[in-house]
Simulated scan of single mutants.
Amino acid sequence: MDTTKRENPQLAPARSQSGSNPHPHPHPLSLAVIVASNRPGRFAPVIVRWFLRHAQNRDDLDVSVVDLAELDLPSALGVAAPEGLAGVSATLAQADAFVVVTPEYNHSYPAALKSLIDWHYAQWHAKPVAFVSYGGVSGGLRAVEHLRQVFAELHATTVRDTVSFHNAHGDFDGEGRHKDPTACDAAAKALLDRLAWWAHALRNARSERPYAV
């Protein structure tokens, strides 16, 4: 199962015509947006659609979505990769950068996300990872702090700038629009600018000297 389809009606927003560029970037960065929640009735699509409006309107990014709700990853690791994981693995390998959109469950991140991370290894090496989190009073930041430790072990570089939504359900209206977008829109731009800087730097470094573990 390939979870990178951009036409996913639950997640993908329409592109803004004002954000289109007749002169696209000649060497766009490949960005994989990982949707960590697979819970029934999840709030993740609201957050993801909001974020994709920012990411997909940049001409320096080619955005794909990896939605864990479309995967059936076993919790027990084995030698052989699960059936249907090849498309996702290829997307992660091709990516120059990642954004993980995650809630916080019991002071940490979802088990499905840990399974996705653990089923892969070299795909994360020498690449930047940024985080968009949401939850209650903590805004998912405790999940992010745990993820920083995990990705460090996988030789990835986590970006300092984050976007976090505290008590997220109250931040958006019935149409999925943020009620007071000034601060979060600015935070999204800062995150993407910083992520793009690291992605360019690390892509150039990998091309000049392959990363060895």
Results as ranks from 00 to 15, higher is better:
M1A: 13
D2K: 09
T4F: 06
T4S: 10
K5Y: 09
K5W: 08
K5N: 14
R6A: 13
E7W: 07
Q10D: 13
Q10S: 13
A12Q: 13
P13A: 11
R15L: 10
R15E: 08
S18D: 05
G19R: 05
S20V: 08
H25L: 06
P26E: 14
P26K: 12
H27D: 12
L29Q: 07
S30K: 15
S30G: 13
S30W: 08
L31Q: 00
L31C: 03
A32L: 12
V33Q: 00
I34P: 02
I34L: 14
N38I: 11
N38W: 09
P40A: 11
G41S: 11
G41E: 11
A44V: 07
P45C: 13
V48Q: 03
R49F: 05
L52Y: 00
L52D: 00
R53A: 02
H54V: 02
H54L: 05
A55V: 03
D59W: 06
L61N: 01
L61I: 04
D62K: 10
D62M: 10
V63Y: 00
V63N: 01
V63K: 01
A69K: 11
A69T: 13
A69I: 11
E70G: 11
E70P: 05
L71F: 04
D72C: 10
D72A: 15
D72F: 11
L73M: 07
P74Q: 03
P74D: 02
S75W: 10
L77M: 14
G78A: 07
V79I: 11
V79L: 09
A80E: 15
P82F: 02
P82Y: 03
A86M: 06
G87R: 00
G87Y: 00
V88A: 13
V88W: 02
A90D: 14
A90Q: 14
A90L: 11
T91V: 14
A97M: 07
F98R: 00
V101P: 01
P103C: 13
N106G: 08
N106A: 14
H107W: 12
S108R: 11
Y109W: 10
A112V: 13
L113Q: 03
S115Y: 15
S115E: 15
L116P: 01
I117T: 04
W119K: 02
H120D: 06
Y121Q: 04
W124S: 02
H125A: 07
A130P: 01
A130S: 09
F131N: 05
V132E: 00
S133W: 01
Y134I: 08
G135C: 06
V137W: 07
G139C: 05
L141R: 15
R142A: 05
R142I: 06
H146K: 10
H155G: 08
T162N: 09
T162D: 06
V163H: 00
F165I: 08
F165T: 02
N167V: 15
H169S: 14
G170D: 14
D171I: 08
F172T: 05
F172N: 03
R177C: 10
H178R: 10
D180V: 13
D180T: 14
D185F: 04
A186H: 11
A187H: 10
K189I: 12
A190S: 15
L191F: 01
L192I: 05
L195S: 01
L195E: 02
W197S: 12
W198V: 03
A199T: 01
H200T: 15
H200N: 15
H200S: 15
L202S: 05
R203A: 06
R203V: 01
N204P: 08
R206G: 04
S207Y: 07
E208L: 15
P210R: 14
P210A: 15
A212T: 14
V213R: 12
V213N: 08
